[in-house]
């Protein structure tokens, strides 16, 4: 390949780094989206034989959200290999021990079980909060849009917004709301 040809090859198949903020996101819902970027399905040059996947950096994996009773009902199985070594860990317990495990398992189990999977999982970087190392933050060129809209909590409204918000009636001055 000529020099120019090599430059073109590197330019086309260079791996991009994408950022994904996992606050208030459901990992089971997001894993198809993440898998798409890891495999390279977002590129028109995709081919299953060619390794054209990208890196994905997930931050705030500590703030993921499961619907309903999932935190209590979803259990993760592990066997040490020795007799009597089977254990079932509920999601909340696993999350306490390692906040990145749930997202990683969600993406891993969504993927097809081929030899490609282990290689591609190496390119998924998960961080529990927004402290992402500088070397990785430098590489990031794109942010993947989150699937669920993040609702605004009551604490996050500023005093001015609360005062400006239209009211029909108001409690009397001496009314005790809570102690």
């Amino acid at each position: 390949m000529s020099q120019f040809g090599r430059v073109k090859q590197w330019n086309t198949f260079a791996r991009c780094w994408h950022l994904f903020d996992a606050t208030w996101q459901n990992p089971l819902q997001c894993s198809p989206l993440i898998e798409k970027y890891l495999k390279g399905l977002h590129k028109p040059i995709y081919h299953p034989f060619v390794d054209c996947g990208d890196h994905v950096v997930i931050m705030n994996s500590k703030q993921i959200a499961f619907p309903g009773e999932e935190w209590r009902r979803r259990v993760y199985f592990h066997h040490t290999g020795y007799s009597g070594g089977a254990s079932w860990t509920p999601a909340w317990e696993l999350h306490e021990k390692d906040p990145t495990m749930i997202f990683r398992k969600a993406v891993y189990h969504y993927m097809k079980g081929n030899l490609f999977r282990r290689v591609v999982m190496e390119r998924l970087h998960i961080y529990p909060d927004s402290n992402v190392p500088e070397e990785i933050m430098e590489n990031i060129t794109n942010q993947i849009q989150p699937l669920r809209p993040i609702p605004k909590t009551l604490d996050s409204y500023s005093n001015e917004e609360i005062e400006k918000y239209p009211k029909i009636i108001d409690y009397p001055q001496d009314y005790l709301l809570s102690k």
Partner: peptide, 11 residues
């Protein structure tokens, strides 16, 4: 393969 590529292009 063509469908995958067109879908990626559309996105």
């Amino acid at each position: 393969l063509w469908n995958t590529r067109i879908r990626a292009g559309c996105e």
